[in-house]
């Protein structure tokens, strides 16, 4: 049990320095973030969505933020919780299979069930633009398994 602790700590240190899974050590969980701009492309009269690198990003553009996770260890990971604070210049574009927070990450729930203090001081239903954090829960990740979580947002 203790050895796991050590492995996890080593892994966290490596990740914090900006690298992905180290080659030799037995890594537990590796994360890799990515962001793309969602472009509407019309070809031959049909409109489709195309993902591009965020080289040209303007207010109003749609973005998709993706985080890939991999269990590089040899034990199952349980109660995997990914918390993602939204960058200030973006607002959530749509709800999905994740919980959201409208109070800076203190509490989470479904957007429809949350309330915020309105301009007049009275509580009002929370809107997409009020979301400060999104959170996913993954029950377990088998050794060697990977997956991804993502959310769509719009540049304010």
């Amino acid at each position: 049990m203790k050895s796991h602790h050590i492995i996890a700590a080593a892994c966290a240190a490596v990740l914090a320095s900006g690298l992905t899974a180290p080659a030799a050590a037995q890594a537990a969980v590796a994360l890799k973030g990515d962001v793309k701009v969602v472009r509407q492309v019309t070809e031959n009269g049909r409109t489709s969505e195309k993902l591009e690198d965020p080289n040209q990003v303007l207010p109003g553009d749609q973005l998709v933020f993706t985080t890939r996770y991999t269990n590089g260890g040899n034990e199952r990971v349980d109660d995997f919780v990914v918390t993602n604070p939204l960058p200030a210049p973006v607002k959530l574009a749509k709800v999905d299979s994740f919980e959201v927070s409208v109070d800076g990450g203190k509490s989470f729930g479904a957007l429809a069930a949350l309330k915020v203090s309105g301009a007049d001081g009275k509580p009002r239903a929370a809107e997409l633009g009020d979301v400060t954090h999104v959170r996913w829960r993954v029950a377990s990740i088998a050794p060697g398994a990977s997956g991804e979580v993502k959310y769509f947002a719009e540049v304010r």
């Binding site: 973030g33 990003v57 985080t67 960058p87 973006v90 540049v155």
Partner: peptide, 30 residues
């Protein structure tokens, strides 16, 4: 700058592990 990073908490074998934070993904608004 739009900077995105996530924090992860998880258990291994029923023991909570040190939460890890991903490297921030940063790009500029044009």
């Amino acid at each position: 700058d739009i900077s995105n990073s996530v924090t992860v908490s998880y258990n291994v074998g029923g023991v909570a592990q040190t939460p890890i934070t991903s490297a921030a993904d940063v790009f500029k608004v044009d």
